[in-house]
Amino acid sequence: MSWRYVGRRLVQLVVVLLIVTFFSFMLINLLPGDPVDNLCTGVCDQEQEAQIREELNLDEGVVQRYFDWLGGILTGDFGRYYDSGVQVSQVLESALPVSLQLVIYTQIVALVIAIPMGVLTAYRAGTVFDRSSNATAFGFLALPNYVLAFYLISIFALGLAWFPPGGYVYLSDNPIEHFKSMFLPVMALAAGQVAVYMRLLRSDMIQTLQEDYITMAKAKGMPPRRVLFRHALRPSSLTLLTVAGLNVGTLIGGAVIIEVLFELPGMGTQIFLTINNNEYVALQSYIAIIGVAYVLINFSIDFTYSLVDPRIRHG
């Protein structure tokens, strides 16, 4: 593993991170009008305005302000909410775990359903089972997550009252209620993922099942289930795992609607609130965090790939 290569990749990573954070920062500052006015929207007095101006170093140039802000971020100062005065880092502490739980649960559920389905539809490719599963998968693929969410809420929460229609319960408070409150949101998000993963795995499995070593495993007298899951699944799962990993990055930013609909106090809800309440400083931080997370996840996956495939390593 050449250190020069690693060094080069890390430098690329840092550059991208800087650019992404810069863009997040700039987004807010491209606002038409005076930042102070935007933050205050008329409710501040002279003193508060001066205070804000000072805090944000509004006298300095944009680039200088960016580095100030970046410095703050790196030391854990994400700014504050101007309405309530609460520190963003505090809010993050409680909101981030909620969003992470949502993302992780979704991936787990999606994989747990998609993997057996992918294996079975590949095994029985061309049969009625396969075609109907594919059709259903297609349906779920096309189904927007909030559409599904509304259906789920109407039927299971309001109609049957099996689950709460919204709200969040902390795992430490009441595990059962926690999972009940997460169940519908996770289902709404996971449905689309299941479809994508299932098709991906199916496609790779069909190819793998034609390999010689599968015939060889059969010729050894191994039963179908063993051949499928112990011999065929592992070589076929690479693409699936890669996409699943990348999706974690995508989901982090994409679950806003679901969080809002189900009233989950995660980062998505915070973003919604901050945008609607003109809390631009907090918003900046959130966007930056999500962007950075996405870049880091992508980078790790890319990097792992290059470790596995010697050809890319020296490319």
């Binding site: 010689d212 070593y213 060889m216 010729a219 050894k220 007298g221 011999h231 592992r234 070589p235």
Partner: peptide
């Protein structure tokens, strides 16, 4: 298979499971 009759395939590169 295995106990009564068995087969050796042509291409050892692809007959063994790589993982």
């Amino acid at each position: 298979y295995g106990t009564e009759m068995s087969m050796v395939f042509q291409d050892p590169m692809t007959s063994l499971n790589p993982v």
